[in-house]
Structure formats: structure tokens, C-alpha cells
């Protein structure tokens, strides 16, 4: 191990990590937005758009991010749609993550008993009010662990960004291996930096998950219907 080499390389890795983190954050926000829109379309059974959402979800869940990115980055420019690497990465990650988030919302919504919605309606609330004030808060709370798992999954998926010419962690590591043959150092830094990116997120998720489980505001005996 060449400590000097490692010390000198850290800034480059750090820069790459910041890029990864920035794109991941945007992608996760995009995923959440798409997932939420799909949830709205499904809940309110918006004709045509709901079916479109179902098709999108299946396409997104059953194809790899790498192929999605290649299509966006190399394919689309050929029909006149030119996207920068960064835009491709964010769009691709959102396209992938949106369906995972949509499924998280769905499982949460399914866990809320129908009778909760009826109780809201019987108080004269509109369907929108019932959704935003009664169903969504309960569904989101139930889905927190799944959201957390999805976020970690999406951060890991960013590792393919190097394939569309982004100088992310994998890109930097591969560069060092190719140019300097310092494989050990390059790989060690790669692992360490991914740990720095993912471990805190995973720890926070575990913490929130535990808190949600113990401080359930939901009385689940209502769910089982007794």
C-alpha cells in the first residue's frame, strides 16, 4: 500500500463522491415525485393516465438502469434529443426509482383499511381531503422502511453512472487502475468512499425504522377488524 498515493488521491475521490451524492439526491427526489404522482393516479383511478402509470412501472421495474442510461445517453441524441451526462443520470435514476417509490406508496395505501376512508367521507370530507389528511399520512408512515430501503438501493445504483461518462467514484477508481496500476489503493478508496456514502444513510434508516415500529400511532387491532 502506498499511503502517499492514497493521501494524494483522496481529493479526487471526494470530488467524485460529491458528484455521486448530488446526482443521487436529485434522482431520489425525482423518484419520490414520480412515485407520488403514480400513487395519485392509482388512488383516484384517473382514466388513461392510470394505465400509463402501470405500463411505466412495469417497464421501469423490469429493465436495468444501465440499459436505461445507454438508451438516454447514446440512443436519444440520434433522434435529436441531446441530454448531458448529468441530466441523463438524474432522469435515468428517477425513471428507475419512480416505480420503486410508487410500489412503496401502494403497499402503504393497501395497509390502510378502507373503513378509514369511509369514516372520513362520512364526516363530509371530499375524496381529496380524505386522501391527504387520512390515507396518505398513515400510508407514508407504514412505508417508511421501504422508502429507506429504496433510497439505499438508488444510491448503490449510481455506481453505473461512469458508463455515461460521469466522473463518479467507479470512474475515478477505474482511471487509477488503468493509468497507475495501483489496483489495491484504488479499490480500497472505492470501497471506503461507498461506505462513507451508504453507512450513514443505512444507519439513519435503521434508526427511523425502529422508532416507527415502537411508536406506532396506529392501532393495528382496527386493521384486523377484530
Amino acid at each position: 500500500m502506498d499511503i502517499e498515493f492514497i493521501r494524494e488521491s483522496i481529493p479526487l475521490y471526494a470530488e467524485a463522491a460529491v458528484l455521486t451524492l448530488r446526482l443521487a439526491l436529485l434522482g431520489i427526489l425525482g423518484s419520490g415525485a414520480i412515485g407520488f404522482i403514480c400513487c395519485l393516479l392509482r388512488t383516484f383511478r384517473v382514466p388513461v393516465l392510470k394505465q400509463a402509470a402501470e405500463v411505466y412501472i412495469e417497464l421501469s421495474r423490469n429493465t436495468p438502469l444501465l440499459v436505461q442510461l445507454f438508451f438516454l445517453y447514446f440512443g436519444l441524441p440520434r433522434i435529436g434529443v441531446v441530454l448531458s451526462s448529468e441530466v441523463c443520470a438524474v432522469v435515468g435514476l428517477s425513471f428507475l426509482g419512480g416505480s420503486y417509490m410508487a410500489e412503496a406508496f401502494r403497499s402503504g395505501m393497501e395497509a390502510v383499511p378502507v373503513s378509514q376512508g369511509e369514516a372520513g367521507l362520512s364526516l363530509g370530507m371530499s375524496r381529496h381531503q380524505v386522501f391527504f389528511y387520512i390515507l396518505l399520512p398513515q400510508a407514508a408512515a407504514t412505508s417508511i422502511p421501504v422508502f429507506g430501503a429504496n433510497i439505499i438501493f438508488l444510491i448503490k445504483e449510481t455506481s453505473v453512472f461512469s458508463a455515461v461518462a460521469l466522473a463518479d467514484l467507479v470512474f475515478v477508481a477505474k482511471d487509477f487502475i488503468g493509468m497507475t496500476y495501483r489496483t489495491d489503493e484504488a479499490l480500497l478508496l472505492l470501497v471506503i468512499f461507498y461506505l462513507i456514502l451508504i453507512l450513514p444513510v443505512s444507519a439513519v434508516c435503521a434508526l427511523i425504522e425502529r422508532r416507527v415500529r415502537y411508536a406506532q400511532f396506529g392501532n393495528r387491532s382496527i386493521v384486523s377488524g377484530e
Binding site: E58, N62, T63, Q68, F71, F74, G75, R78
Partner: peptide
């Protein structure tokens, strides 16, 4: 325009296998 069609086809191939 080959890239568009080839990557599009690969996308659909993966879908056809996984779906």
C-alpha cells in the same frame, strides 16, 4: 440512428425476459 434502435431493442429484450 442505429444507437436509438439497438439500445431500444436491448431495453425491450430485457423487459421481455424479466416481465
Amino acid at each position: 440512428s442505429a444507437a436509438f434502435w439497438v439500445y431500444g431493442a436491448i431495453f425491450l429484450l430485457y423487459f421481455a425476459v424479466c416481465y
